[in-house]
Design a protein around this nucleic acid. Structure first.
Lengths: 208, 208
DNA sequence: TCTTATTTGTTAATTATTTAACAATAAAAA
DNA sequence: TTTTTATTGTTAAATAATTAACAAATAAGA
């Protein structure tokens, strides 16, 4: 709840902590040590303790952290009060895979709409998410107060589609196309390219 | 070609440079400045020059870098001499999306096999990649000398499937499940969780 | 030819991130 | 009750990564 922004890396890890903690909690675990969290996520215990310190939560000495409380503490930091709505732009295999990811997971983030150049040739609905045409995109995004979009269109359409998203008031984009985007400074952009991940693996595998 | 391992981050950026350079090259560009590369990829010119210095390539003063030569230079660093074979384990939407990514792209990495618990209910082949049953996995991986695997099975099957991969001689895993894996130290593991990326975006969007 | 402008290559400085170290302390054991 | 042990919380040190600064050099222009 403190106002000073946390480091990028810490925010990322907090999300991972919560995932691991929810897992542990559903397995019946009530308390967890920093070194247990660290082992689960390939981190060091100090790093875990430091991150938890940064969000202002305290554990019980010699007992570790109360799992449920820590989940709460992390959540008050990384969640918004209300559900955040997410749009998926490009309802191909990748778009649908992401919709599937959210199916079932009760998250503060919910995918409320899909958009595609041609929803008619694909299923009009997938795991409860309706697919709309790109023409309807701007109005639906505005009407529903959607601020986050996941871009899973083919690379050649990335730039143009992103521009439309920005014009529609989107403030955060997760770009899965292999085309790097230019966005205004008030839009938070995160890019992920699978090829890069794979090439990195290939590099470190070959030299072993 | 120098033997001392490059930093993780540099390897990642080299892959991105190549992608951007190939793009530029196919657009007819012959020379490119460090600040142009930087702009394309949200980096600083110094960082680009520094990375290029690390791989031992030199540009032309006042002309920038020869695009084709730089692509070559990057490639000799991050590619293996022979094609690296990749297996995709879990041929659902995500698995197929990744297969699609490679389709067409002429890369040193090629997806040579898919594996799934039940190939019969899905298409036996997708974009040229044949889907095999999990029973055949170990023998096919060994027979074809596959060392890299992409894990796109449902979370609950992650651990067990990863174990089979390791037993089959896989040395690099790209894990897309939301379950963090434990692997021996001679296996290079890279994990990517979409939820974490999204929650990070949500965090930085809300506090703006 | 000489000067100016520009861009590379590289060292030094800075900043960010991680790790080490350890005091504090509370539970468990003696 | 006293001692031992284990674990947190936090400051200080170390490491890693980025950025600044600038010399070198060459092409272009005067």
């Amino acid at each position: 709840m403190d106002n000073n922004k946390l480091p990028d890396k810490t925010v990322e890890r907090l999300s991972q902590y919560r995932r691991a903690l929810l897992n542990a909690s559903s397995g019946g675990k009530q308390y967890i040590f920093s070194h247990e969290i660290a082992d689960l996520l390939h981190l060091t215990p100090v790093q875990v303790r430091r991150d938890i310190m940064l969000i202002g939560y305290s554990g019980k000495l010699r007992h570790g952290y109360n799992v449920k409380e820590l989940i709460e503490a992390v959540s008050t930091i990384i969640d918004t009060k209300n559900k955040q709505k997410v749009a998926i732009v490009g309802v191909g295999n990748l778009g649908r895979a992401i919709m599937g990811y959210f199916k079932g997971k009760k998250s503060q983030l919910s995918v409320v709409a899909g958009f595609d150049i041609n929803c008619d040739t694909i299923n009009k609905e997938y795991t409860g998410v309706v697919c709309y045409s790109l023409e309807e995109m701007e109005s639906i995004i505005r009407k529903n107060n959607i601020h986050i979009a996941i871009l899973t269109v083919p690379g050649h359409a990335a730039e143009q589609t992103a521009q439309k998203l920005i014009n529609s008031g989107i403030k955060g984009i997760l770009n899965f196309t292999s085309h790097s985007l230019q966005v205004p400074s008030d839009v938070y952009l995160e890019e992920y390219d699978m090829i890069t991940s794979l090439e990195k693996i290939a590099y470190f595998v070959k030299s072993e």
